[in-house]
Nucleic acid binder design. Structure first.
Lengths: 240, 240
DNA sequence: TTATTTCTTGACGATTTCTTGACATTATTC
DNA sequence: GAATAATGTCAAGAAATCGTCAAGAAATAA
């Protein structure tokens, strides 16, 4: 018998958590969090299979939390909220949520939607830690190490590296990188990107003029090379 | 650049189809079907990237149609219906639908939910890799390997090879290649093309004077030969 | 506020890639 | 086989791209 799937319920109201716990505990193992901080901590440590997230948290905006989670994990998220405005739904869905349910909702519908996202996510679980030879990128801790030493990257440098990691091995065009780092509105000038790539390389490459990780694909963009760690457990990251 | 994603709208009411078509046609290419039979036929032939399905069809139950589709395809389906009963939602979702929207709904929400299921579907994309004996072309990674060694092609060389791969086996005229690589405006002089073909061959052919992959069709153009890998699993390429 | 870090822009050299012309090779036709 | 057309190769200058440095602007922290 396989173990129950774990569902994390994030809601600041205890009665609601208890109600959902009671409703779902027959099918799933339930974890509970009352705040955004708690939700993050539990997600990092317990790696639930799905998250049911109420937008109205005391310490953090739910949409921001969703975006934060999406920086390093693809765990399915169902957002649950009393807000019924279309803008709220669009914001949450575009931030990375997989579904949006307006309170009040039927437990049957919630469970059906849970089944939908779980059957889709039945894919292999990805480790949110990227290893490539001397380089490791821990997306949950925002930590980058080279030869065991932590490299202190600026926010922009980290963003670029994170996006490269999330598509490790694939070429990202200048456009794609610029859009994801600076937003859709930004111009197509790749100069800024080049400067930041240069700075990033100085921090993580042994010889920036002959990079091993951040490879440039002339005329196209950049690619993070996947290197097997020499004689080490090969923990591969494949995030899409 | 990349073509629009195709969305199939299935609804028996013409005004609704027209409305959705108008709303979505800026972002997507819209296909329309008024009946279940039609929807099946179009799905088989056109392979849309997502389906928006109204449950109230004249010839077939929408849930049955969903189940039918799920027997052979994972194309994302958003069910749209006037029925608001929980059992209807659960039935449709459990039949294989990815989402359920109750009419009336906002176009903004529909488009947001469409983005959700499309980004999901785009993630675990089966990498379209072209194999021909010793040559592999991975279009998502921008990677060309010959005998396991990655060949470093210039953008133009890669463009030419990409176009050949996308029409593997078929002859492409000089005109077609020139237009796709250098744009419509470019003259009909094929000298430039010849030089680049030559450079390309030097990088991927063992003996450029006797090419195995990039074949010239005298007086017409070029063709990429499809070769079965010797005693290896043949991974097929499906590009649209 | 001040101090510090980070971001952005401009300049410039190094490198890569593109394009062109001259000429060699191969294929086709008579 | 010879003549003609089409295709392939080489090399060099032109153009575009890329990496780096440095300085001022903006954001952040103290």
């Amino acid at each position: 018998m396989s173990e129950k799937l774990q569902i994390l319920v994030v809601d600041d109201e205890r009665p609601i958590r208890r109600f959902l716990n009671a409703s779902l505990s027959g099918e799933y193992a339930i974890l509970e969090a009352a705040t955004g901080e708690e939700a993050l901590a539990i997600t990092v440590s317990a790696r639930p299979d799905a998250i049911i997230l109420d937008l109205g948290l005391p310490d953090m905006d739910g949409v921001d939390l969703t975006r934060n989670l999406r920086e390093w994990t693809q765990i399915p998220i169902i957002v649950v909220s009393v807000r019924d405005r279309e803008e709220d739904k669009i914001a949450a869905l575009d931030a990375g949520a997989d579904d949006y349910l307006t309170k009040p909702f039927g437990v049957g519908e919630l469970m059906a939607r849970l089944r939908v996202i779980l059957r889709r996510a039945a894919a292999p679980e990805n480790e949110p830690v990227f290893h490539a030879d001397r380089l490791t990128v821990d997306l949950t801790r925002h930590e980058v190490t080279i030869d065991g030493q932590t490299a202190s990257l600026t926010p922009t440098e980290y963003d670029i590296l994170r996006i490269l990691v999330q598509h490790a091995g694939k070429v990202l065009t200048h456009q794609q990188l610029i859009h994801q780092v600076w937003g859709e509105a930004y111009s197509a000038d790749s100069h800024l990107l080049r400067v930041n790539i240069s700075n990033l390389r100085r921090k993580i490459e042994a010889d920036p003029s002959r990079p091993r990780y951040v490879m440039t694909e002339p005329g196209v963009g950049y690619r993070l090379r996947i290197l097997e760690a020499a004689a080490a457990p090969r923990e591969q990251l494949r995030i899409n």
